[in-house]
Nucleic acid binder design. Structure first.
Length: 727
DNA sequence: ATATAGAATCTTTTT
DNA sequence: GATTCTATAT
């Protein structure tokens, strides 16, 4: 069999890694050096040359996106589906283990997964049961504490008091929270990993089984593994199955959630026979972009040492745009997008990156105004929307009556006369008798602890859920979802409560949930073994929160946080908000090591760009409701050699008078009120039609007017693009 | 019990 | 700014 296609198109170090003997291998792969490629080809090599059965291969990634891409590329390369191979995220694979062995893991068969939102609610409830004041011990902090301990593999019963009252309270909350999870049959993200680790560790037969099964384990983004994940890998690989780890210490950006760069160093210590390969040739970016990235990251101490180089030409200089404010920043970028498209570029070749998701809003409104299609990744996700979570909670409670978080979510949604007081009676009863709220509410009604009215209402709810469960029995999944949405009366509730615009939006999303369930593929032969389709779908919803909306087929600009950009590449990249305090983020100043992580994040962002890279910052910015003045450009800008930077000037550079109070305007629109239009004036717009000016604001390139259009309602428009004409 | 208004609070990144 | 909690009125 001719296997040359596996090695032919690789460079020397890539080949070395792909064809390495079956020993532990550590691949230090710089950005754009063909990391995924090496992983994919390695798997092809194992299957075709080493004759390893796909069944015996375990391949772990961090994001669902990466996992899907991995499987797709392997199948493309081999030209055949590779069923039986385990490819997925740490959490996804841990989940699979727990579903298979729910009994040994001491979980109910229909355990449900908590997302961080659900988790926070449950932490709050744990705190309330301990009579701890939310003000003194913020639930978020407790949640963070719990997750950090789980990532370290520490259970509360093994934690020692150290005299610190704060620490003691945290332990108490952690304990109470675990009890609640157990009672409700729910499992959080950290628990998936920890529980599956304990499952394998404490069941020698299972351990033997899986260690024999997985002859080869491959890990992507190894620098982002935390202690628990590393232990998980070691446990599954045992003594005999070599781990093939690919990572880049310069791209470690998840230290804040427990990722340990040290795992890379430890790897060669723990596996003394490990082969290390460095991939240093970059195939992605122009020389200028790469030089900038190298210069920047050189400011970090304690790197493993890698030097990325490329054969590619210099390319364009890196553009730097100093915007007057965040609106000007967005409108400049919108202008650049127009230019790119006019020159024949596609919009989806452009990425806009920012430090925090909140920054996307300004771009969104600007792009809507200018008719630029865009797609936002991250932020509020589909399965995290309130209406979707409501519907899912109904579904969950039909699958597992004891799911307290779901119970609390929907007992009175839509309102059915079960108020806070009734709920707290049930909650207290549940806590006292170690029951789930479902069981407690039945007993409370039977014991007559409630007024007749409240008792009736609770009974009504119990009957509703039971009827729902009966009604969806043996229906197709999408009919189950449809049925539950209908009999819960959620649609009617939202329409009545939130009016047409918002309510309709929620109704649309609920319809989309039905479509999503219809499109859900059920593969009983592997991951959801012995799992009914509803539980499988609910797990899927929790583990893959789904992207925000937006038509994936439309050619649209891609907007995302720098974190979620990792692993992706784009011909043109805008890195926005390059301002001290925003990026590097102000929280990074306090803790040691955080600044270097911010710098690595910047390195990741820069190396996403293939041809054109633009950095931008604003001199003033409205953030969290108030305007920040006197913004200092990010130190990272200064860490890039000036010779690589081309400072782009706004056509109308805002200049300040001595008092810094008012901007002069050099635009052609200049007139008495700085915009050329007066309030009350009638104007016409190409797409929105005719309207009346309501207000004006700003000047120059960021001058805006508010127009009340006859048919479209009122909108803010940037004059530089809106092209309004007076009537 | 519920709807509403006003106050308080929190704003980094994600499976 | 937006969400989430709290106090008050219905």
């Amino acid at each position: 069999m001719d296997v040359s296609y596996i090695l032919d198109e690789l460079n020397k170090p890539q080949r070395e890694a792909v064809s390495a003997p079956p020993a532990p291998v550590l691949v230090l792969a710089g950005a754009g050096s063909g990391k995924t490629r090496v992983l994919v080809h390695r798997i092809a090599w194992l299957i075709e040359v080493e004759h390893v059965a796909p069944f015996s291969i375990l391949s772990v990634t961090f994001t669902n996106k990466a996992a899907h891409e991995m499987r797709g590329r392997i199948e493309d390369l081999l030209g055949t589906p590779v069923g039986g191979m385990w490819v997925g995220t740490f959490h996804g694979l841990a989940h699979r283990l727990l579903r298979r062995h729910w009994q040994e893991a001491k979980l109910p068969q229909h355990f449900q997964i908590l997302d961080s939102d659900d988790q926070l609610r449950l932490v709050k409830r744990a705190q309330r049961s301990l009579d701890l004041d939310d003000k003194l011990w913020p639930p978020r902090q407790a949640q963070w504490f719990i997750n950090a301990r789980k990532d370290e593999g520490v259970r509360p019963q093994y934690m020692q008091e150290n005299g610190d009252i704060n620490y003691l309270q945290m332990i108490r909350i952690y304990t109470a929270y675990e009890d609640l999870c157990k009672q409700s049959g729910v499992v959080d993200f950290g628990e998936l990993l920890l529980r599956s680790l304990e499952l394998i560790r404490d069941n020698p037969e299972l351990q033997k089984h899986y260690q024999q099964r997985f002859r080869h384990i491959l890990v992507d983004e190894f620098q982002d593994t935390n202690e628990l994940q590393y232990a998980w890998l070691q446990l599954l690989s045992g003594a005999s199955s070599p781990v093939f780890a690919v990572g880049d210490d310069d791209q470690s950006i998840y230290g804040w959630r427990g990722a340990k760069i040290e795992n890379i160093q430890n790897f060669t210590r723990d596996y003394s026979s490990a082969i290390t390969v460095k991939l240093e040739q970059n195939y992605r970016s122009t020389s200028n972009i790469l030089d900038a990235a190298n210069a920047l990251i050189a400011n970090n101490a304690g790197r493993l040492g890698k030097n990325l180089w490329t054969d590619d030409p210099d390319g364009e200089l890196i553009k730097l745009y100093a915007a007057y404010n965040e609106i000007d920043e967005a409108s400049y970028i919108a202008g650049q997008i127009h230019k790119w498209v006019e020159q024949g570029g596609k919009r989806d070749e452009i990425a806009i990156l920012y430090r925090s998701n909140a920054q996307s809003r300004v771009f969104e409104s600007q792009f809507i105004e200018q008719g630029i299609p865009y797609r936002v990744y991250g932020g509020q996700r589909f399965f995290e929307r309130a209406e979707i979570k409501d519907a899912l909670a109904y579904l969950r409670i039909t699958a597992n009556r004891d799911d307290d978080p779901s119970f609390e979510r929907v007992v009175n949604q839509p309102t059915r006369g079960i108020g806070e007081k009734t709920v707290s009676v049930i909650r207290d009863y549940a806590t006292q008798h170690s029951l789930s709220m479902w069981q407690a509410s039945k007993e409370v009604v039977a014991n007559g602890h409630l007024t007749a009215r409240a008792g009736n209402a609770v009974n009504g709810f119990i009957e509703l859920i039971n009827e729902m469960a009966d009604g969806i029995y043996e229906l197709a999944l999408h009919d189950q979802v449809r049925h539950v949405i209908a009999s819960s009366k959620l649609k009617e509730h939202f329409l009545k409560k939130e009016g047409d615009e918002k309510g309709n939006n929620r109704v649309e999303n609920l319809k989309e949930l039905i479509s999503a369930s219809q499109a859900f593929e059920y593969k009983p032969e592997d991951e959801h073994a012995n799992l009914d389709i509803l539980t499988a779908f609910l797990s899927h919803a929790a583990l893959e929160a789904g992207e925000g909306q937006g038509d994936p087929n439309e050619d649209s600009v891609q907007m995302m946080s720098m974190h979620s950009a990792k692993g992706l590449e784009f011909p043109q990249v805008f890195i926005t908000g390059m301002e001290e305090g925003l990026f590097p983020h102000k929280n990074a100043l306090e803790e040691a090591g955080r600044m270097e992580e911010e710098r690595r994040l910047c390195y990741v962002a820069i190396t996403r760009a293939r041809q054109v890279l633009t950095l931008s910052y604003a001199e003033q910015r409205q953030l969290y409701g108030n305007t920040m003045y006197g913004i200092v450009p990010s130190k990272f800008i200064h860490e890039i050699p000036g010779s690589l930077i081309d400072e782009v000037r706004s056509q109308q550079v805002p200049t300040w008078n001595t008092f810094g109070s008012k901007r002069q305007n050099q635009s052609s629109y200049q007139s008495s009120n700085e915009t050329g239009f007066s309030i009350g004036q009638r104007i016409s717009h190409a797409t929105f039609g005719e309207g009346v000016i309501l207000d004006t604001e700003g000047a120059g390139s960021s001058a805006r007017v508010q127009v009340n259009f006859d048919y479209e309602g009122s909108k803010w428009l940037v004059l530089a693009y809106a092209n309004l004409s007076a009537i």
